[in-house]
Amino acid sequence: MRPQFVDKQWEQGKRMAIYGLAFLIMTLLILYSSNSTADLYSPFRDSHDVHRTVHNTNLKKWAGKDGYVPVYGNKSMNLRCRQCALVTSSSHVLGTRAGDEIDRNECVIRMNDAPTSGYESDVGNRTSVRVVAHSSVFRVVRKPAEFLNRSENAAVIFWGPASKIGRAAKGTLYRLIQRVSMTYSNLSFFIISPNKMQKFDKLFQKETGRDRKKSQSWLSTGWFTMVIAIEMCDNVKIYGMVPPNHCGRLPQPKRMPYHYYKPRGPDECLTYLQNERGRRGSHHRFITEKQVFARWAKLYNITYAYPTW
């Protein structure tokens, strides 16, 4: 009978060893997953991070109307609003039925070639200001019925390097913008001046502690639009922007198109994470920018909807 007792002890010990090994493996996997996830959504780091210093900027004092150069005529960028809606291009706005609420705001701000036609119930119909990157100029002017004919007395602000859209360069993009501004005299067209563009770069460095060029970063249209909204609005409600830690949450967020009007486009979180960690070439630092936006919300009467922060 003794050998049978020994066999039972051996079997029991073997089972305990297997359970212990399984527990150890699961623990390591959880720790690895947690560390990897945290690393993914934390702001990007580079070789200069050891000496990184962040300074808050008073954007109300930083703002200046002289940085917006009229493309045609002598118009000035002097729009002031008590309550603004900033509508992002995120697919998080779909299904919100927030269109009427957005249109009730004194001013409505949109970005690039984000349309309203077909999406009115979720994003509204009015546009007071549209901020357009140099890379989106062709997409905007190619559909004047959508982006230029639907808005009365709206302002269109173009941003980009002076070599692309600067008056002195007189390149293809500038001539196109100039021709459009002469055709649609009911709208006001502005280009952010080279000096103002440099101020935006310096603002990024002050708020993040990182030199934009050395860190191979490219400011997003969202960065310019957020600053412009703070300049012109007393209160800003932002629709569709996710918080900086959104893509690192567990369980992982469901896949969402990066743009609400491109259902087959790239996944939002994948786009954010690839840009945040990109090292070859220049990349948008979406998550780092959102870290700054979270701080600004406490200073400039900014609230977030769909999702709320």
Rank of each mutant, 00 (worst) to 15 (best):
T221N: 03
F204C: 04
S220Y: 13
W223R: 11
V236G: 02
I238R: 00
F224M: 10
Q205I: 06
L219I: 11
Q216R: 14
T225C: 04
Y239H: 11
E207D: 13
G209T: 13
S220M: 10
G240Y: 00
V242T: 13
P251E: 10
N235S: 12
L219E: 08
P244Y: 15
K237P: 00
M232E: 12
W218Q: 15
N235F: 02
N245A: 15
E207M: 14
A229W: 01
K206W: 01
G222Q: 08
F204P: 13
E207F: 08
E207I: 11
R212S: 12
N235R: 12
V227D: 06
R249D: 05
G240I: 00
D234A: 02
L250I: 15
T225W: 06
R249P: 07
M241N: 07
Q216I: 09
R212H: 07
Q205T: 14
M226P: 01
I230G: 03
N235D: 08
E231F: 14
L219P: 04
G209R: 09
P243R: 04
S217Y: 14
L250T: 11
Q216V: 07
I230S: 01
T221Q: 04
M241W: 00
C247S: 05
K214M: 14
P251Y: 06
V227N: 05
R249Y: 01
M241D: 07
F204V: 03
F224I: 13
C247P: 01
T208Q: 03
M232F: 12
V236S: 03
Q205D: 11
S220N: 13
S217M: 11
M226C: 07
C247D: 03
T221L: 06
T225G: 05
S220F: 09
S220T: 15
P243T: 01
M241V: 14
I228K: 02
I230R: 10
P243L: 06
G222S: 04
L250Q: 09
M226S: 06
